[in-house]
């Protein structure tokens, strides 16, 4: 198990280097999106419309946070189960999405698309949302405000701890256990 500190947006070199099983600390901008936001982006893409953020080279964190108390940047902020986004993910990967942070298995179609497009899948520890929230230094809703927790948020994260589960070659840590 190797350890890396990686700045976002993630560069091609980092994507090539990372292997399933590597422990990584991410610093930079990520966008939150989960079920409802994915459906909207998928439909927008189908109509040929722009997405709410520049997806090219971006990182999506599958997250619907709890509300922030006064003085906090965000509430609890751990990953949700990624597999529910599988239906929409190959489209986003084709549009330039480079990394995803979530937890749980991905479909063969997503893994194939990751290999084709050169992308990586990270897991953050599910159920550690209070701890992970400490790595989030700013949070701003940028789209779909009406969705509440499911709105798209732009986050700046510092040393967010994640594990590389599926690398760009399609090697899958979950399959090796």
């Amino acid at each position: 198990m190797k350890e890396y500190k990686i700045s976002l947006p993630i560069c091609e070199n980092d994507i090539d280097t990372l292997q399933a099983g590597d422990y990584v600390y991410l610093t930079g901008t990520v966008y939150t999106a989960r079920d409802a936001a994915h459906l909207r982006m998928y439909e927008a893409a189908g109509r040929g419309e722009d997405l709410p953020f520049d997806i090219k080279g971006s990182v999506i964190y599958y997250l619907g946070p709890s509300p922030a108390r006064e003085g906090q940047v965000i509430g609890s902020a751990g990953p949700t189960t990624s597999g529910r986004m599988d239906k929409y993910t190959p489209t986003l990967l084709d549009m330039g999405l480079k990394a995803m942070i979530g937890k749980g298995r991905r479909s063969p179609e997503v893994i194939e698309s990751m290999k084709k497009n050169g992308a990586v899948y990270f897991a953050a520890v599910g159920g550690a949302g209070a701890l992970l929230s400490k790595c989030i230094k700013s949070a701003e809703v940028i789209a779909y405000d009406d969705l509440g927790t499911e709105a798209i948020r732009k986050l700046y994260v510092e040393d967010l701890p994640v594990i590389t589960v599926i690398d760009r070659e399609g090697n899958n840590l979950y399959d090796s256990v």
Binding site: L63, S76, A128, L131
Partner: peptide
């Protein structure tokens, strides 16, 4: 560590409450 932070800072243990 998460349980400690949740208790001290009154942040839900998991965002899925």
């Amino acid at each position: 560590e998460n349980l400690k932070v949740a208790k001290e800072d009154r942040i839900p243990i998991c965002q899925d409450t």
